[in-house]
Amino acid sequence: MAHAVFRFYEELNDFLPPDRRKVAFDYPLDRRAAIKDVIERSRQRGDRAPGASPASGGG
């Protein structure tokens, strides 16, 4: 299976679980997935962008 290494900087860390902030991490890839989908799946379920309301879709 393919994989990618991600590391996010600055405000983008706000969207990640604490153990993935400011560090590089491996993530397995489904070759058919869009990068947007991979990034969204790397977040913990239920996380929302800071200040986002449930009605706005969470970011």
Rank of each mutant, 00 (worst) to 15 (best):
M1I: 01
A2N: 08
A2I: 00
H3A: 15
A4Q: 04
V5N: 11
V5R: 12
V5P: 11
F6E: 10
R7C: 14
R7G: 07
F8S: 13
Y9Q: 15
Y9E: 15
E10T: 08
E10N: 12
E10L: 09
E11N: 09
L12S: 14
L12H: 02
L12Y: 01
L12I: 01
N13V: 02
D14H: 04
F15I: 02
F15P: 03
F15A: 14
L16D: 03
L16Q: 02
L16E: 01
P17M: 09
P17S: 12
P18S: 07
D19T: 03
D19L: 04
D19I: 00
R21T: 01
K22Y: 08
K22R: 11
K22C: 05
K22A: 12
V23T: 12
A24F: 01
A24T: 06
F25C: 03
D26E: 12
D26I: 01
D26C: 10
Y27F: 13
Y27Q: 06
P28C: 10
P28L: 04
L29F: 00
L29Y: 00
D30A: 03
D30R: 02
D30T: 02
D30P: 01
R31A: 01
R31D: 09
R31L: 05
R32M: 06
R32C: 08
A33W: 00
A33F: 03
A33I: 00
A33H: 02
A34R: 14
A34W: 01
I35N: 10
K36G: 05
D37V: 05
D37Y: 00
D37Q: 13
V38M: 11
V38W: 04
I39V: 15
I39F: 10
I39T: 10
I39R: 14
I39Q: 09
E40K: 14
E40M: 09
E40W: 08
R41I: 03
R41S: 14
S42Y: 05
R43A: 12
R43G: 13
R43Q: 13
R43T: 11
R43V: 12
R43M: 13
R43I: 09
R45F: 11
R45H: 13
G46T: 05
R48E: 07
R48I: 05
R48H: 08
R48T: 11
P50G: 09
P50Y: 05
P50I: 05
P50N: 09
G51H: 10
G51C: 10
G51K: 07
A52F: 06
A52R: 10
S53D: 07
S53Q: 09
P54T: 06
A55D: 10
A55G: 06
A55Y: 06
S56W: 03
G57N: 11
G58R: 04
G58S: 09
G58I: 05
G58Y: 04
G59H: 00
G59F: 02
G59E: 02
